[in-house]
């Protein structure tokens, strides 16, 4: 299956920005079951500075703001060829040691809420337990947009009882790590059935299971990723896998608009 992706992020500033930089992680990762046929990233109002692969093997582009811009538009588009792997990403690659993925981060520290979830988890194998965990996290946090905050930790989301895909992923990761399993955050694209326009980019989680390697879990949709899921960036939590992070000077306020189209060819 071929997915045609057109992703535009537009930033409007209330005043000219004297200077700033943005790190962009918007290139789909080479992954089993995912072949990038064509991909292009452009930035209006910015200048490309450097490209490199980070410690999670994400392809990163650093842009700087052109002087005194009031609008910045980041466009990522291209074609990705997908085939089904039943959610299995496979063996761990790269130099980042697996133990790194067992360490809690600020967003994924297991507190009372996570530990309680973990205690209830059942299953004969790690894989079964992870599926059970996914179901329990799904049950504990209702998917509701517009009511959560980007800075929420796993415990914050559990306490609130609602959240978005980012919160589902964080809670799953915190719990998996509390169970002693390496886990990571994935940001990417999802083609929702029957619709080309997507409301936002998506996020899910992966856990490392002996024998299988990394396995994906989309808690929000209670399934493992299939051919509709395009992996873009991974990290210990949201902060490392976010599509765009920036740092800018000046006091201008920022407004962001995202438009995302994922269409299926053939």
């Amino acid at each position: 299956m071929r997915l045609l992706i057109k992703h535009t992020t537009r930033y409007d500033y209330s005043a000219p920005v004297p200077y700033g930089v943005q790190q962009i992680r918007l290139s789909p990762k080479p992954t089993r079951g995912q072949v990038v046929r064509d991909w292009k990233i452009t930035v209006e109002g910015g200048q490309q500075q450097v490209v490199f692969d980070d410690h999670h093997r994400n392809h990163v582009i650093l842009f700087s703001f052109e002087p005194e811009v009031t609008q910045l538009v980041v466009r990522a588009e291209g074609i990705v060829e997908m085939s089904d792997t039943a959610g299995v990403v496979g063996v761990h690659q790269g130099l980042a040691p697996l133990w790194l993925f067992q360490k809690p981060t600020e967003h994924t520290r297991a507190g009372k809420g996570c530990r309680e979830l973990v205690r209830m988890v059942e299953g004969d194998s790690d894989l079964e337990k992870l599926h059970d965990l996914s179901t329990r996290v799904h049950g504990a946090i209702a998917y509701e947009t517009g009511k959560s905050e980007i800075a929420w930790s796993a415990e914050d989301a559990l306490a609130a009882g609602h959240g978005v895909c980012q919160d589902h992923a964080h809670v799953f990761i915190a719990c998996a790590r509390a169970m002693g399993l390496p886990a990571r955050y994935v940001s990417g694209y999802l083609r929702m059935d029957g619709q080309d326009e997507q409301s936002a980019t998506h996020a899910w989680a992966e856990a490392h299971v002996d024998g299988l390697g990394w396995v994906g879990f989309d808690v929000s949709n209670a399934i493992s990723p299939d051919t509709r899921y395009v992996r873009v960036a991974t990290g210990l939590d949201y902060t490392e896998a976010a599509p765009i992070v920036g740092h800018r000077y000046g006091l201008a306020e920022e407004r962001m608009d995202v438009s995302l189209r994922v269409t299926q060819q053939q």
Partner: peptide, 24 residues
Amino acid sequence: DPLNFNPESALGVPGIMDVYRAGG
């Protein structure tokens, strides 16, 4: 590097780690 490390730092250079990782 306030972009890559402590975002509150006014002493650093945003993006210097990126240039470093790219070998610049």
